[in-house]
Design a protein around this nucleic acid. Sequence first.
DNA 1: GGCGTTATAAACCGATCAGTTATATATCCG
DNA 2: CGGATATATAACTGATCGGTTTATAACGCC
Lengths: 116, 116
Amino acid sequence: MPPDPLSAVFAALADPTRRAILVRLTQGAANVGELAAPFAISPPAVSKHLKVLARAGLITRGRAAQSRPCRLEAAALRPAADWIATYRRHWDESLDRLDAHLQDLQSGMVSDEPAS
Amino acid sequence: MPPDPLSAVFAALADPTRRAILVRLTQGAANVGELAAPFAISPPAVSKHLKVLARAGLITRGRAAQSRPCRLEAAALRPAADWIATYRRHWDESLDRLDAHLQDLQSGMVSDEPAS
DNA sequence: GGCGTTATAAACCGATCAGTTATATATCCG
DNA sequence: CGGATATATAACTGATCGGTTTATAACGCC
């Protein structure tokens, strides 16, 4: 059972190494060796990270001689950004608190009386 | 070793159940029973999800009688949104391709000659 | 064809995850 | 106090993760 795409993207972003790889790819395509260099992990480990990123749609791979360069596919970040954007409205804490408080009152979750 | 906060947030968002819990909490605070209801999973499982969300700073818990209501802390999403926002610039594929191509040329990654 | 380079695949390992059941804790009510 | 309700903790399980080492495959070059 493949995870839904949104989960795949968030899961891919949950690893610092993978985020660093994406950052690196904003400077242009790179092959596995170049990506592995700064991380003190073995090439196979990088290869696995790339597979995760590819499954999430965040990169695509090409072929150039022995090299399989990776290219960033930033468009795959859009659904994640959209999901988070729904919460922008709640970022302002005062609005948020007010909102929640009103909701709580409405649903009878709190007494609205001073505690003890 | 605690994971860095950004990883904690992305990891928390990587689970559909936890995302649904956050969505539910936009409608106001809720206790564990209310959160567990729509998901056909046991209360302890929900409790664990809430612990993950709390560790990521995405919710805070209160006390009201036997109930420990959860409140959304949307501000914790900000770093994640900011991280992703850095890639907005790359979402337009034509800009992205051009960018990457120029970078590739500059770093000598591709020949810039027609293949074969 | 054979060699070096680049990258993936396979097998394995310890840690963490997401869920369960069963047990404990905390709070209210009578 | 004792019982009911709401939640958390403990102990366990199967699956997945992030890494390793070893072996294998694809390509370019001589």
